[in-house]
Nucleic acid binder design. Structure first.
Lengths: 224, 224
DNA sequence: ACCTGAACACCGTTCAAGT
DNA sequence: ACCTGAACACCGTTCAAGT
């Protein structure tokens, strides 16, 4: 599977294959993802990717100005998929806003678990150029907007106490889910009393607890 | 300040100075920290640190088996200090368990803000060897134990509903504070509606909100 | 015991030259 | 338009040899 023979098709086929000519860009993204899966985001080497694809060390730089741009392109793809998955996690059976918030968070956690390499890349701030990628910012904003809107509905419906600051509620949800995802991938959960294999259950129970706490304060005045 | 003249004191002075001979190990840790402050954890180069200290590229490897060990040593120091600071953040005026929990979280957030480079190193899982460092594990466990104990007291006292799973409460606290710290350092807060300069206030308000939510459910049954 | 200095096998990136 | 291949300035790490 390494070093595929040079494609000899003379006029470019519309779809896949054809490494050297045609879709080097896409092939680089795929090779880089495999490297990230094997060695983590840090382990992605553009030279190594080029080598595996049978092109010269300089070739990738016709498609990406630098390594960071490669990583950012991967993050863009990851973030777009995450956004879609989070949306899909909300099912019609999730009638109340808080049920949707919980489903949203669960979708996020599940995606992080199922696509560890991609998740690590999106959250590897030092290796990507968030500020220079409108696409990346947009997909992140989409998740944020969905979170805030859902919380807004929860307050409007009286499921969450309207006395609470909306921004703080959104930030709390976000920080919790993000923190749980990181702790899970970084292997911190065993230290917090989670048995190996119980990561999914533990993170989702914690998410459920947060949602329950948000609901519990709905009618009562915020206690002393 | 770069390349200090070779110390000529013949019998080692008890305290500082004396680069080449004596405390290369400590000097490396300091130089590496400066590099981390300037370029982030990724930017720490043992060769560059050696260069700045006027020693050969191989010299550092008499003190650290590899770069990762250097990073781990920095993380150990950081984590020990973080632990102390978190402890000190709890003041006698914090009478109730939840007040202590909040103080603890605030101490964590403040430390992350004030010692960004150190915090990034502790949380740079790919660059340190957590599994191979009992010291690092111990200081992390200490913070965890403090968190769990405080929550335990809160439930014993009736400040937090005892029906809630203790492990989930601890995990929720941890994930929230860790998530907030990361979002703050990674510059995500502006996207979540936090005005520049308002990071400290926003993260602490979010922490306060979590504590309030925990208290709110104390007497009532966890709502539907 | 601690450090030098050369060496090895890597990087990311650039750039003339080829097709 | 896209790629080669050599070059440059870096890495981390090892190891004989020096003091």
């Amino acid at each position: 599977m390494v070093k595929p023979a040079k494609a000899s098709a003379s006029h470019a086929a519309p779809a896949a294959r054809a490494y050297h000519h045609g879709n080097l860009r896409q092939a680089l993204l795929e090779a880089a993802l495999v490297l990230a899966q094997q060695r983590g985001p840090e382990g992605v080497s553009v030279r190594e990717a080029a080598r595996q694809l049978g092109v010269s060390p300089g070739a990738p730089f016709r498609h990406f100005p630098n390594r960071r741009a490669l990583m950012t392109a991967m993050a863009e793809e990851a973030s777009a998929r995450l956004q879609i998955e989070v949306r899909k996690a909300i099912r019609p059976r999730d009638k109340t806003p808080l049920a949707r918030l919980r489903a949203l968070g669960r979708g996020y956690l599940q995606w992080a678990r199922a696509h560890e390499a991609h998740f690590r890349i999106v959250s590897a701030r030092d290796q990507i150029d968030l500020a220079g990628s409108p696409a990346l910012q947009a997909s992140m904003q989409a998740v944020r907007a969905l979170t805030e809107q859902t919380l807004h509905e929860a307050q409007a419906v009286g499921e969450v106490n309207s006395a609470h600051d909306a921004a703080a509620l959104a930030l709390l949800s976000r920080a919790t889910v993000y923190g749980l995802a990181r702790m899970q991938l970084d292997g911190h959960l065993p230290q917090w009393g989670v048995k190996p294999g119980g990561e999914a259950a533990a993170t989702e129970a914690t998410l459920a607890l947060l949602v329950r706490l948000m609901a519990a304060g709905a009618s009562g005045a915020p206690a002393a």
